[in-house]
Computed example of a mutant assay.
Amino acid sequence: MQTRVVFNQKGGVGKSSITVNLAALSAQHGLKTLIIDLDPQANSSQYVLGEEAVITASQGVLEPNIENYFQDVLGVKEQKGLIGNALGSLLKTRSKGLESYIHHTRFKFLDVLPASPHLGALEHALESKHKIYKLRDAIQPLAAVYDRIYIDTPPAFNFYTLSALIAADRVLIPFDCDVFSRRALQTLLENILETQDDHNDRLEVEGIIVNQFQAQAKLPREVVAALKADQLPVFDAMLPPSIMMKESHQKNLPLVYLAPDHKLTQAYLALFQEIEKGRG
């Protein structure tokens, strides 16, 4: 099993789109694949589950989800029925593995552990009770079930992002070709290295995914050249801008299922193959 976290502290760089489309390609290639959505915006969850994961006036948060898992880790959900005491509640919830919170999607070999917009309310309690290794420990038994896990993260370096980095083998960094993204990259890499030193010595930066790359424009070419000059691991396959991505979101269909021959889909395929080929 290979676990990858898609991480950038800057928002709007395509984390969820990259997470879902690489996971979909993984599944399409016959690899049993799980998406874990740790972003309270739940974009990855909605992308693959559609209306089922959308909160409306008549429909609440989809459950079970990753919030429920962390609630059970804390023992804050009281069990109703015959087991009413706190000890019984803790024993019952601790016996549940992460697989109890996972949803199947309509796509073969692709599952998702959905996010919740209420994750922020649990963060302080999780930090204060030192639950930072719980996600890693819960993921390890899934090696018997899944070949690949992709973790989508919030645009911040917080408890959930750190949990993902501790649980992962590799980091994929989405990157928009602008000056602000390049300036933020140094801080991001420092946070990854600190996590590697303090919590997860097997963690590797697998590569930087250049998104919204306009090959004909001068600035994007210069930014990419600067990254390579700094000897940063930039993937050769770069993702061009396309209205097709918005259509993919709207129809809740990853690109490989919506438009397999489209140039953006083919760019994702090249990226996926480059990632898989680079595995040690």
Rank of each mutant, 00 (worst) to 15 (best):
M1T: 06
M1Y: 06
T3C: 15
Q9F: 05
G11K: 03
K15L: 06
S16P: 04
S17R: 07
I18Y: 00
V20H: 14
V20Q: 12
A23F: 05
A24T: 12
K32A: 12
L34K: 10
D37E: 14
D37I: 09
A42Q: 11
S45Y: 13
Q46S: 12
Q46M: 15
E51Q: 14
I55W: 02
E63P: 06
N65I: 02
E67Y: 00
Y69V: 05
D72E: 15
D72C: 04
V73S: 01
L74E: 01
V76H: 02
E78M: 05
I83L: 13
A86D: 06
T93D: 04
R94A: 07
R94V: 03
S100F: 05
Y101W: 04
T105Q: 03
K108A: 07
L110Y: 05
V112H: 11
L113H: 10
P117R: 00
L119K: 08
G120Q: 01
H124E: 11
L126Q: 11
S128W: 03
H130C: 04
H130S: 10
H130F: 05
K131C: 08
I132H: 11
Y133I: 10
I139C: 02
I139F: 02
P141V: 08
L142E: 07
A143M: 10
V145T: 15
D147V: 09
R148M: 14
R148Y: 11
R148N: 13
Y150Q: 01
Y150H: 04
A156K: 11
A156V: 08
F157Y: 13
F159P: 08
Y160P: 02
L162Y: 01
S163C: 04
S163N: 14
A167M: 11
A167I: 06
R170Q: 11
R170E: 11
V171I: 15
L172I: 15
F175K: 04
F175H: 12
D176T: 07
D178M: 08
V179R: 15
V179M: 13
F180P: 04
S181C: 13
S181D: 09
R182K: 12
L189A: 03
E194H: 02
D197A: 01
D198H: 05
H199M: 05
N200I: 08
E204V: 14
V205C: 12
G207F: 11
I208R: 00
I209L: 09
Q212W: 01
F213G: 05
Q216G: 05
Q216N: 08
K218D: 08
L219R: 04
P220A: 06
E222D: 14
E222Q: 14
A226N: 04
A226T: 15
P233V: 05
V234T: 13
V234Q: 12
A237E: 01
P240G: 09
M244W: 04
M245S: 09
E247G: 13
E247M: 03
P260R: 02
D261I: 09
H262E: 13
K263W: 00
L271A: 06
L271F: 13
F272D: 12
K277Q: 15
K277L: 10
K277I: 01
R279N: 14
